[in-house]
Write a protein that binds this DNA or RNA. Structure first.
Ligand SMILES: [Mn+2]
Ligand SMILES: [Mn+2]
Ligand SMILES: [Mn+2]
Ligand SMILES: [Mn+2]
Lengths: 228, 228
DNA sequence: CTCAAGAGTTAGCATCGGCTAACATTTGAG
DNA sequence: CTCAAATGTTAGCCGATGCTAACTCTTGAG
């Protein structure tokens, strides 16, 4: 029913460029066909075809069996989608009383439907927030984004005092657990030890809880060192 | 990217059932293939095919060249979409400072993306409003809607004093004009005369303006008589 | 170094929602 | 009552997004 102009992207295309961009956001590796298929719950065949179309449209660079990357155009589109997603998440929390664990899925679909006018009004009403409820920075209207320079993931942090800057919103159950433990953006956290053999990281949370985390949970949390 | 369950409708299907329902809302005739094609800016062929699919899905009843109507299932879906649309419009006006002439298009796309949870939260935040910014009643969660019993369109109103209950939001320029003239839901209005030969209706608005209206403009406004 | 598992691609198919062109039916002006 | 215009349908096409099955390429364990 809507009339996508020649240059307008489908929601599928928008989700793909966003996913490709997001894979690298906090120092990650480029994504892969298989990873995208898992992310979207589709088959490798479908992803391969879709990537081919996005390449033809000038949003993505990809040669068979090689790395998937964004063109400058694709990157700008991705950043604008990230902006929409994060502003919508923030809006849902502050205006409609959503919990930080409930906003991701809702924003995932609203981001394709809200007009640019609506996104900008939300930005105004919220007073131009710097980051979303998970601590992720919000790109400006023209696609500029700034990450804390010294951020490290909990998985690779040396023992010491840190401030949590960001927690991945991809798993909502995990967010509930983190919340219970006092693991929130801007909260202080003390890294006790990394046990490489067990693959666990032991931390003291803002609640004073001693917690051992492993795997994705440690990769979901980004820290900056507390100056002492 | 979303996973529409077996029974989930596409946005196209949602817009169709809503349009079929809306045609009859204020005493109108059943819609037609041609009218739907105009409404959506598509061709008759496309509408004919789509109606065939909706019939196969059990949302619509239609035999070739006959009347287009909704099944009970289709009608419930339509009412739930109308609810979403009108609650979203109301929300955009009260929370994001949209004008009543700006909300329709935005709601037209958000209605397909917002979750039921979000619609219900909006309903709560707004305090369960009875009608939208255009005076259209808002169906309940289970699809019940109530229209003023004695409503007549301005096109067929006898001279006398009335209260405007509803103004069609389908033409946003017209809404701006009505606003300027003092023609708003809940405003008093005095119908002076109907000139059948000229096809015009002359009214005195809440601003005291003497205004002559014709055609769609007179069909867009619904009135209830003021008890004297 | 080899070769099988894993990753990626291709072929062939389906559905949805678009289109144009041609055809069929209905209806109302005369 | 007639017939042309208006209305609706069908046929045949397309692109986007999905699928399965079968194939190819890459890579790492041994
Ligand atoms: Mn999305
Ligand atoms: Mn987030
Ligand atoms: Mn719509
Ligand atoms: Mn409305």
């Amino acid at each position: 029913m809507s009339k996508p102009a020649k240059s307008d992207l489908s929601s599928t295309a928008e989700d793909y460029v966003k996913a490709i961009w997001s894979a690298r956001e906090w120092g990650g590796e480029p994504t892969s066909i298989t990873a995208l298929a898992e992310r979207f719950g589709t088959t490798r065949a479908t992803v391969s075809e879709t990537i081919k179309r996005l390449t033809a449209r000038g949003l993505v660079t990809h040669e068979p069996y090689k790395e998937i990357a964004l063109t400058p155009t694709g990157e700008l589109e991705a950043l604008l989608m990230v902006r929409r997603h994060r502003l919508l998440e923030t809006f849902l929390v502050t205006t409609l009383g959503y919990g930080w664990d409930e906003v991701h899925d809702e924003a995932e679909s609203l981001e394709h439907a809200a007009s640019t006018r609506m996104i900008d009004r939300i930005d105004d009403v919220l007073g131009h927030p710097d980051h979303d409820p998970h601590g992720d920075p919000i790109p400006s209207r023209d696609g500029v984004i700034r990450h804390p320079a010294s951020a490290v993931s909990l998985a690779e942090a040396a023992p010491g005092d840190y401030c949590i800057v960001r927690i991945s919103d991809s798993d909502s159950d995990r967010l509930v657990y983190f919340d219970e433990q006092g693991l929130l953006p801007r909260s202080p956290i003390n890294v006790q030890s990394q046990d490489d053999r067990a693959g666990t990281t032991t931390v003291v949370t803002a609640h004073g809880n001693l917690v051992a985390l492993a795997g994705d949970a440690t990769r979901a949390i980004m820290l900056v060192p507390t100056p002492h």
